[in-house]
Design a protein around this nucleic acid. Structure first.
Length: 570
RNA sequence: UACCCCAUGGUGUAAUUGGCAACACAUCUGGUUUUGGUCCAGACAUUCCAGGUUCAAGUCCUGGUGGGGUAACCA
C-alpha cells in the first residue's frame, strides 16, 4: 500500500498543471534538449532541511520523474567556513526518508572547482573579469545603492595579462584572505544590483571539507551554481523567488562562456503559520537551546516532523495539495496537520490512554474480578483485527470526561448520568469525592450494568457519550508530550524587528504530561510506532526518550475536537 | 526613491489559454456513528480598483492601488 502511495502523483497528468509544469511540458513538446528533463536539488550543507525545503525537493524530484528524467542531489559546498559534513549526512537521510532517490547522481559543487577555475580564466581572457584590490568595505561603497549608480573600481581597467597573472597568483595562494577578488566586468550602473560587477572568486584560506587545502580561493554562488547546473546538463533549474533577480547574472555567465544553458524558473517558497521556515532563524533556536536540537518534534524540520510522527506520505500529500505558484503566501498549519490525520485515520491502530487520570470505582463490580474485553484495532481497517483489554472495578477516565456540575450539552459522566465505556459496559455515576482543600474531584463512584457487556444494551437505550478508560491495576504509567504550536502567533516574522520572533515562542509548546495511564499492551510499543489514542489524537513513540517497556509518546496531531469548539463558544 | 516579481472565498491553489468561477482545508447547519473521531448532505466569491477591446474578460490592453524581493568577498 505504501508503494501505491509513493508512485501516485509520479505520473504525468495526475499532478495539477502548475506554471512550472506547463513550461516544462512546452519545452518537451518543442523538443528542447531533445525532450529531456533533468533537474537538481542543491542544498548547502549548513543546516537541517525543513518543510520548506521539502517543497523545493518535491518540485524538483517530482517534475523530473513525471517527465521521465532524473534529479541530481548536489551539495552547494562553496563556502567551507560555514559548512559541515554532518549536515550533508542529515540531508541525505531526510531526502531518502521523503522517498526520493538520486541514484548515482550525488554531486558536489566542489567536484567542479578545477573546471570552474578554468571557466573563470576564460572570462579573464575575454576581458570579462578582472582582479580587484578593493576591500570588502570599499567594494560595498563603490557598488552604490538601489537608487544611485555605482562607481567603477580603479582596478577595473587592468590588462588581460595583469588580470591573468594576478588571478593565477590568487589561486597559488600568494595573497592573504580578502586581499583581492575576481569580479565579473558587467555594469556598475545596472539597476539590477547583481549585475554591478559581482564577485566571482574570493580568497579564503580555509580547509574545505572535501577538497582540503587544495584551494585558497572559492567561487561565489552565482558563478558556481549556474555553471554547476550547466556541467551537469540540468535542463530546468527550479529555485525559489529570491533568485529571480539573479537570473540575468545566471544567464550572463552561461552566455559569455557559450556553454550548455539550463533554464532557471523561480517559484514562491513555503511559509507556514505558527512557525518559522528559515534556516537562519531555526539555527538560532537550536544554538541558543530554545528547542532540543534540530530534531525537536516541535521543529518544522524534516527530522523534527519525522520524530514527531509525520509520515513521508503525509508530507508529500500536503505538498501536492498546496500547489506551486509565484504568489508569496502563508499556508495554514492545519493543512499539514490534516494531511497527517487523513493518513493516520486509515492506518493507525487504536489504543486507550488516559492522560489526566481520574479514578472511578464501580461499586457493584464483583470484588477482585477481572473481565477481558474485545476491542477493535481500527474501525477503518478490518484487517487490523481486534485485541483484548482487561476491565476491573477500579478504572481511570479522563478528568475532562467528568463534571460534578455539567454545563449544557455536556453528555459525558456527571452525577446521575450514564455513559458507555468503550468496548466495555454502561456505567452510571452515583456519587463523587472531592479534595477538601482544593475542591477538585478525586474519585467517582459508579455502578455498571452487567447486561451491557461489550457496549450494547439489550433494550437498545441510547447513550450519548462513549468514554475511553483503562483498568487501574492493569495500566502502566508513561510520559506523553502533547505538543502545541512552537509560536504563539500565526506569523512570528510579522514585525519589522526580525529579532523579536524568539519572544513569541509558545512557553507551553512542550505540553509534557507525566503519570499518564495507558492500556497494558502499549508497554510493548516500539520507537517510531504510531497509534491513535482514542478520542485524543495520533501519537508516536519517541525515538530518543523511550526505553524498553517505557515508551514516551509524542502527539503528532490531535483529533478534531468539536466539543472543544462548542465550549470555546460558550 | 530605482529595478524585478506578484494580486481569484477565511487559507492555499484551479479554470481546457476569451465561453456557466472549480478543488482542498477552515468556518457554520443538519444527518449517521460504540471515538463530540471517521463518513454523508448543505451553506459560504459580483476574481484589488478604474477605464478600454469584445456578442462574451479572472484571462487581452492602459492607468492606478496594494504586497513581496534586491544594495554579503552568504547561499
Amino acid at each position: 500500500m505504501a508503494e501505491d502511495k509513493t508512485s501516485e502523483g509520479d505520473h504525468p497528468g495526475e499532478q495539477p498543471r502548475d506554471f512550472i509544469r506547463s513550461r516544462v511540458a512546452e519545452d518537451v513538446a518543442a523538443g528542447k534538449h531533445g525532450g529531456e528533463v533533468h533537474t537538481r536539488f542543491p542544498p548547502e550543507p549548513n543546516g537541517f532541511l525543513h518543510i520548506g525545503h521539502a517543497k523545493a525537493i518535491t518540485i524538483n524530484f517530482s517534475i523530473a520523474a513525471e517527465f521521465g528524467g532524473v534529479c541530481n542531489l548536489r551539495f552547494d559546498d562553496t563556502n567551507p567556513a560555514r559548512e559541515d559534513p554532518k549536515y550533508a549526512a542529515a540531508i541525505e537521510e531526510d531526502l531518502a526518508w521523503l522517498g526520493f532517490s538520486w541514484g548515482d547522481n550525488l554531486f558536489h559543487a566542489s567536484d567542479y572547482f578545477e573546471q570552474l577555475y578554468q571557466y573563470a580564466l576564460q572570462l579573464v581572457e575575454k576581458g570579462l573579469a578582472y582582479v580587484d584590490d578593493l576591500s570588502a568595505e570599499e567594494t560595498r561603497e563603490y557598488r552604490g545603492t538601489v537608487n544611485a549608480a555605482g562607481r567603477k573600481s580603479p582596478f577595473r581597467e587592468r590588462s588581460v595579462e595583469e588580470n591573468l597573472d594576478l588571478f593565477r597568483r590568487m589561486r597559488a595562494g600568494e595573497f592573504s584572505d580578502g586581499a583581492r577578488t575576481l569580479r565579473a566586468k558587467i555594469d556598475m550602473a545596472s539597476p539590477n544590483m547583481n549585475l554591478r560587477d559581482p564577485a566571482i572568486y574570493r580568497i579564503r584560506k580555509v580547509t574545505h571539507q572535501r577538497s582540503g587545502d587544495e584551494w585558497p580561493i572559492y567561487p561565489m554562488y552565482d558563478f558556481a551554481h549556474g555553471l554547476s547546473d550547466s556541467i551537469e546538463g540540468i535542463t530546468h533549474s527550479l529555485c525559489s523567488l529570491e533568485f529571480e533577480n539573479h537570473r540575468p547574472l545566471y544567464d550572463w555567465f552561461l552566455d559569455k562562456l557559450g556553454v550548455f544553458h539550463p533554464q532557471q524558473i523561480e517559484f514562491a517558497r513555503l511559509n507556514l503559520s505558527f512557525t518559522v521556515l528559515s534556516k537562519r532563524y531555526l539555527t538560532q533556536l537550536v544554538d541558543e537551546g530554545l528547542v532540543d536540537g534540530w530534531d525537536d518534534p516541535r521543529m518544522p524540520t524534516l527530522a523534527g516532523l519525522r520524530r514527531r510522527g509525520y509520515t513521508p506520505e503525509a508530507v508529500r500529500s500536503f505538498l501536492a495539495g498546496i500547489g506551486v505558484a509565484k504568489f508569496n503566501s502563508t499556508v495554514e498549519l492545519v493543512l499539514l496537520e490534516n494531511a497527517l490525520r487523513v493518513e493516520l485515520n486509515k492506518t493507525a491502530p487504536r489504543r486507550m490512554a488516559v492522560l489526566d487520570p481520574l479514578k472511578v470505582v464501580i461499586d457493584n463490580w464483583p470484588a477482585g474480578e477481572v473481565d477481558f474485553l474485545t476491542a477493535i484495532n481500527n474501525p477503518e481497517d478490518e484487517s487490523a483485527g481486534t485485541r483484548t483489554v482487561p476491565f476491573s472495578g477500579e478504572l481511570y477516565i479522563e478528568q475532562g470526561d467528568f463534571k460534578a456540575d455539567p454545563p449544557k450539552k455536556f453528555w459525558r459522566l456527571a452525577p446521575g448520568n450514564e455513559v458507555r465505556l468503550r468496548y466495555a459496559f454502561y456505567i452510571k455515576c452515583t456519587s463523587f469525592e472531592t479534595d477538601p482543600e482544593t475542591g477538585d474531584v478525586t474519585l467517582v463512584h459508579a455502578t455498571y450494568d452487567p447486561e451491557t457487556r461489550g457496549g450494547d444494551s439489550p433494550d437498545g437505550r441510547k447513550i450519548k457519550a462513549t468514554l475511553h478508560w483503562v483498568s487501574a491495576e492493569h495500566s502502566f504509567e508513561a510520559d506523553v508530550r502533547n505538543f502545541d504550536h512552537l509560536f504563539q502567533t500565526p506569523n512570528p516574522m510579522a514585525g519589522d524587528d526580525k529579532t523579536k520572533f524568539k519572544e513569541l515562542l509558545n512557553p507551553d509548546s512542550l505540553g509534557l504530561k507525566t503519570g499518564c495511564k495507558l492500556e497494558p499492551g502499549l508497554a510493548e510499543a516500539q520507537p517510531g510506532e504510531r497509534y491513535q489514542f482514542e478520542r485524543l489524537g495520533y501519537y508516536c513513540v519517541d525515538t530518543r526518550l523511550s526505553a524498553p517497556q517505557a515508551p514516551v509518546f509524542n502527539r503528532a496531531v490531535a483529533l478534531r475536537d468539536s466539543w472543544a469548539k462548542v465550549q470555546a463558544r460558550g
